[in-house]
Amino acid sequence: MSEIDLIDKVYRGFMKILVTVKRVVDYNVKVRVKADQSGVELANVKMSINPFCEIAVEEAIRLKEKGLATEVVVVSVGSKTCQETLRTALALGADRGIQVDTEDGLDSLAVAKLVAKVAKEEAADLIIMGKQAIDSDNNQTGQMVAALLDYPQATFASEIVIEDGAAQVTREIDGGLQVLSVALPAIVTTDLRLNEPRFASLPNIMKAKRKPIAVKTAEELGVNTQSNVETVSVASPSDRKAGIKVGSVAELVEKLKHEAKVVS
């Protein structure tokens, strides 16, 4: 390594990024509730990386490509099948993976405890997570990891700028946009407009097969994954029936005024 490179590295620090990825039902699938109301039908359903996690991986890789990070580690919590999701992230450009081997469907607090432990072990400077898993629709795990580590958080990010040991993050909030600066180490959760993830190239998919995936257990991490929340039942929402087609704008206005009475 040349002296310039060395100074450069020391100056920028060795920022390590941890990214969480969850395996979920593909966003194109309309799930069906099981007849016994115990959950939704997951057999023979297409599974994919959670879209917000894919955005998180892309952002980490871009930071590495800009020379701002030295390593991107991806972690997934679940049964062996979530290694597929880790491979997807490795094919996009992450360096190595960690599977925390547990049953699927742990609640967010348990996942957060496991992720917090891994983040500590890895001494990650930045943890990028999806804002929401599109199966549970919880939107909470990142905030919980931040609480457990007593790190600052910047949720719903649409832009991340790293400078001087802090992340300046633009957040999508109900009223518009907000910019926060959070000191590293910090948690950032991704929103849809942060970036558009790349497609993995075939050579990169091949290369990903040789990248390492470590397996850890909750016991090894010293985390109790028990939950006090029980799913009593899962039901289908009452279906909305299609109404009628109107032939013209005039007919539409007539119906809205006199039939639905929602316009005066």
């Binding site: 039902v25 309309k30 799930v31 069906r32 509730v33 939704v40 599109i134 199966d135 549970s136 629709d137 006090n228 929340v229 029980e230 799913t231 009593v232 039942s233 899962v234 039901a235 289908s236 929402p237």
Partner: peptide
């Protein structure tokens, strides 16, 4: 609601 509102979960917590 879970799964984009395609299912409604009833959950009980003892926290």
């Amino acid at each position: 609601p879970i799964y984009a509102g395609n299912a409604l979960a009833t959950v009980k917590t003892t926290d």
